[in-house]
Computed example of a mutant assay.
Amino acid sequence: MRRVLAIALALLPLAAQAGPSTRRGESIALATCARCHAVGRVGVSPLTEAPPFRDLHRRYPVEDLAEALAEGIVTGHPTMPEFRLDPDEAQNLIAYLKTLER
Rank of each mutant, 00 (worst) to 15 (best):
29 A>K: 06
34 A>C: 01
77 H>V: 11
53 F>E: 00
38 A>P: 03
55 D>G: 01
16 A>H: 08
11 L>K: 00
59 R>W: 12
27 S>P: 00
67 E>P: 00
74 V>W: 11
57 H>Q: 01
82 E>H: 14
45 S>Y: 11
67 E>N: 04
48 T>Y: 13
2 R>H: 12
5 L>S: 03
92 N>H: 15
27 S>I: 04
60 Y>K: 02
49 E>D: 11
43 G>V: 03
49 E>R: 05
16 A>T: 03
30 L>R: 15
66 A>S: 10
21 S>W: 08
25 G>A: 02
94 I>D: 12
32 T>R: 14
33 C>S: 04
91 Q>V: 01
89 E>P: 07
39 V>K: 07
47 L>R: 13
14 L>S: 06
31 A>N: 09
98 K>P: 13
9 L>S: 02
14 L>F: 15
30 L>I: 07
13 P>G: 02
7 I>C: 04
91 Q>T: 08
52 P>F: 04
75 T>D: 13
94 I>A: 08
7 I>S: 02
15 A>V: 07
84 R>N: 05
73 I>M: 14
41 R>Y: 07
37 H>K: 01
71 E>F: 14
72 G>T: 04
100 L>G: 10
38 A>N: 05
13 P>V: 01
69 L>M: 11
52 P>E: 09
51 P>S: 06
63 E>K: 03
83 F>Y: 15
24 R>G: 02
102 R>I: 14
92 N>A: 12
44 V>P: 03
19 G>S: 07
59 R>V: 09
83 F>T: 04
33 C>L: 07
42 V>P: 00
85 L>N: 06
3 R>N: 03
75 T>R: 15
100 L>I: 14
45 S>V: 03
6 A>Q: 09
83 F>N: 07
78 P>Y: 07
9 L>C: 10
80 M>C: 06
4 V>H: 07
93 L>E: 10
25 G>K: 03
18 A>R: 03
21 S>Q: 06
98 K>N: 11
50 A>N: 05
33 C>E: 05
32 T>E: 13
64 D>I: 00
77 H>N: 09
11 L>D: 00
61 P>K: 11
79 T>M: 14
85 L>T: 06
77 H>K: 04
7 I>E: 00
82 E>F: 15
100 L>P: 13
102 R>S: 14
3 R>E: 09
80 M>L: 08
69 L>F: 15
22 T>P: 02
86 D>S: 12
48 T>W: 08
97 L>W: 15
43 G>K: 03
49 E>S: 10
18 A>V: 03
75 T>N: 10
26 E>L: 10
21 S>C: 03
17 Q>L: 14
19 G>Y: 04
53 F>S: 08
10 A>W: 11
91 Q>L: 15
83 F>A: 10
64 D>M: 07
17 Q>N: 02
100 L>S: 10
44 V>S: 12
42 V>D: 12
80 M>F: 11
6 A>K: 04
1 M>H: 08
67 E>I: 07
21 S>K: 01
35 R>W: 10
38 A>H: 08
25 G>F: 04
17 Q>Y: 05
23 R>W: 09
58 R>F: 05
